[in-house]
Nucleic acid binder design. Structure first.
Lengths: 143, 143
DNA sequence: TTTAATGCAAAGCGTTTGCACTGCT
DNA sequence: AGCAGTGCAAACGCTTTGCATTAAA
């Protein structure tokens, strides 16, 4: 079993292209936030994005962090992940269908490729299923 | 496919027994809330429990609703369910392991018997899994 | 110059908490 | 009398919103 591969980093120009292509103005704040959240971040919360921004960008307000994250979600460039152990939304740059493993010992979230999971159910016979969420909770096995 | 069977209703005496057995004083408010949430309620939120209480009991405060729900969860008589479409916690009187189908058209939640789902993954090889959550999202199939 | 994006502070929403009061035993 | 349980209102944590300011085409 191996987690899904990480996104590669993007140049600023590439990020601008992505924003423009999605119909969003590539403002300095948005590009900065995208650099983190679409490439380097690992399921960050809004708070984590804000802390990163404060350390790596002259000025980004809380409102802009939330506005930008919501914008990226609306544009389909980012996915919200809500897990039961916290009220904070986590943001996932992996927009392909996948599942999650939540490591309760480290608070880390790992993407699980659907190929690693075989799921079969007659639930799909009675209902028109649009999405199946699977989250594994646990901790790393001792070696 | 059929949802898991509903809990049967309980007499007030039976509810008192359950509370006492779990080490909680069977106060009037608790018994009333239990009657609803352990028997009649269908994945209610705290708000729904409060509305029901206001209509069926002389006086229950918001604090007592929350206190009682948290108590029942702590005693293992009730399960919290947190789904991504809302921030409100839903309470599930089915404390056996099961999955969920969330009907986005009606906002209803249906328990799914694990027997109805075959799930196999090598995630369990690498990790020490304590819980697997599966939630199907969709709507009722047109007949 | 006109329109969208930003920053700030306040509000919103669900839940929890502090504290005084009530009512069992 | 003692003490857990209750009710009220205020606080809390996270997110959204209103509005004045700024910056970009």
């Amino acid at each position: 079993m191996h987690p899904m591969k990480r996104k590669e980093s993007m140049t600023v120009d590439k990020i601008k292209q992505v924003l423009v292509a999605s119909g969003a103005k590539p403002t300095a704040q948005r590009v900065a936030i995208c650099k983190y959240v679409l490439c380097d971040g690992d399921h960050p919360t809004a708070e984590v994005v804000k802390v990163w921004a404060d350390q790596n960008f002259p000025m980004v307000s809380r409102a802009t962090v939330y506005n930008t994250l919501n914008l990226l979600v609306a544009k389909g460039l980012l996915k919200e992940v809500k897990l039961p152990h916290t009220n904070k939304v986590m943001y996932d740059c992996n927009i392909d269908h996948h599942y999650h493993f939540y490591n309760s010992a480290t608070d880390a979230l790992v993407d699980i490729d659907p190929k690693e999971v075989v799921m079969k159910s007659n639930v799909t016979e009675k209902y028109d299923i649009s999405k199946i969420e699977i989250t594994f909770h646990g901790k790393q096995r001792k070696k």
